[in-house]
Write a protein that binds this DNA or RNA. Structure first.
Lengths: 183, 183
DNA sequence: TTCCAATCTAGACAGTGACTAGATTATGCC
DNA sequence: GGCATAATCTAGTCACTGTCTAGATTGGAA
């Protein structure tokens, strides 16, 4: 509301605006000062919530990993890996601003405890998803199969978000790729 | 040489220094002015060769796609897809500065003709590599198999470069992943 | 030699992230 | 209620950046 000294929920507002801006023009398109202007606060205000630019991206990545873990939970519990693969890619498509920073080691602080916690949740979900596969479907050790599955869905998500897969539905591709990978 | 007005080969020098800096601290760590200082030229000199920051990254990406196409050529000609997968990942490991910008739509100019030419070469190499696989190994249409193969090696390369696969040899993983994907 | 294009210098400008000191507001505690 | 204290925000400053100019220097072709 105009006239109030405090914004009310600046942290959440800035996080959402940052995600939208990243989705539009990438992490480099994000300016802390522009975010502050949009929120109607002074240029230094966001720093209190995130410390610095890296802190903002780290918070966004942590939120993203949490949302990803949530998105995978249902299909993992159901033991349906093909659907887990589709859900993974769908998450990236629906949260491009989050996904674009989640794996960018140069933009985030890997020591952040909240980031590690949420990243662990997402990683566990994917591990459990692969663990539901019948052993005879695996041509390689389970750990390598897990990493290959992760690389496959991450690759599809990344290529799609970078525009390298035009005229291709990423969810369809994820389904087909899961079948090719695990029969 | 000191004292000469012209650098001699500023373009190649800046490209190599930029690749090294990106490998060290990511694309955001690259400063045109710092590159100029290192090369011993004025801060505006690189602009003549690359136009702007985007032009520099575009030139680096084009060079990267060309090197990638070269790196894949031998194993593709031999019809050895597992080795093509390993060669792809090995290229990314050995040229992290190039690879980090090759798929970044927000950093490069997709209209650049040299970029399109080299990218086409790399894409054709990967397509030919998958085409050598016996049809009975494919559980899905060839186009989807090709995209899945690309996503798999790209995913391994990306995750490795972002530090998400510690204690894992990316070449070993590429070999195992190729076996899991195509039997 | 002369001319021209390629290359580089030097200066300026607006925008940025980060830091600081201090003002304002919210909150828990008496 | 009143008050101390932490949380939040403002405003100013700084060095640095990319980009844009106008002009100087150099190499090569005619």
């Amino acid at each position: 509301m105009a006239g109030t000294y405090h914004h009310g929920d600046l942290r959440a507002h800035v996080l959402a605006a940052a995600a939208a801006e990243i989705a539009r023009s990438g992490p480099d398109g994000v300016s802390l000062r522009a975010l502050a202007r949009d929120a109607g606060v002074s240029h230094g205000a966001p720093a209190h919530h995130f410390g610095d630019r890296r802190g903002l991206f780290t918070a966004l990545a942590a939120e993203g990993f949490g949302l990803l873990a949530d998105a995978l939970a249902t299909s993992v519990a159901a033991g349906d890996f093909a659907r887990t693969a589709v859900d993974y890619v769908t998450f990236a498509v629906e949260h491009p601003g989050h996904y674009a920073v989640m794996f960018r080691a140069d933009l985030i602080d890997p020591e952040d405890s909240e980031l590690q916690r949420q990243e662990g949740r997402a990683r566990d979900a994917l591990r459990d998803g692969v663990a539901t596969l019948p052993p005879e479907r695996l041509a390689v050790p389970a750990e390598q199969a897990r990493q290959a599955a992760w690389a496959l869905v991450h690759g599809i998500a990344s290529l799609h978000l970078d525009g390298a897969l035009p005229r291709t539905d990423p969810a369809d591709l994820a389904r087909a790729a899961a079948r090719q990978l695990f029969g």
